[in-house]
């Protein structure tokens, strides 16, 4: 299961340069293609900064010690969720772990869904 997920992530990452030239898509970025819509990506990472006024979020992702920053903006249609309840962008804080679903647009990554997740408890 883990290997399958990793393989999918790697395949997604490898395909990215063929489609886009600018944003970084490190490990953990999972691309989902549909026939009609723009490609979307799923990132799971740690919140670095939130600008509620600008409606933007900086997320730290990466592999090992090679970390990268992903900048994304939100829209009025962006869905927020956390601990089974609705959430607002301003409720997120640096250090929070989130799963985001984004679309790559000419102006950058746009989040369609942001979910605050709890740390894994095996």
């Amino acid at each position: 299961m883990h290997r399958t997920t990793r393989t999918a992530a790697v395949a997604a990452v490898l395909l990215i340069p063929l489609t886009f030239s600018s944003p970084a898509h490190p490990r953990g970025a999972r691309r989902i293609d549909t026939a009609q819509a723009a490609p979307s990506y799923t990132y799971v990472g740690t919140v670095h900064a939130v600008n509620a006024r600008a409606g933007s979020l900086d997320l730290i992702t990466g592999v090992g010690m090679a970390l990268r920053l992903v900048h994304m903006t939100t829209q009025p249609t962006t869905l927020f969720a956390g601990a089974g309840a609705s959430l607002r962008l301003r409720a997120l804080q640096p250090g929070d772990i989130v799963r985001t679903e984004c679309r790559s647009t000419p102006t950058g990554m746009v989040a369609s869904r942001i979910e605050k997740v709890e740390a894994q408890k095996p």
Partner: peptide
Amino acid sequence: FVPTLREFNAGAFPAEMGVTDPEQPTEE
């Protein structure tokens, strides 16, 4: 900080040598 050996190794190429790999294909 790093949960798996695979991630540690895949991250070491770009972090230590500046060599990007399929799991971290972007330069710092």
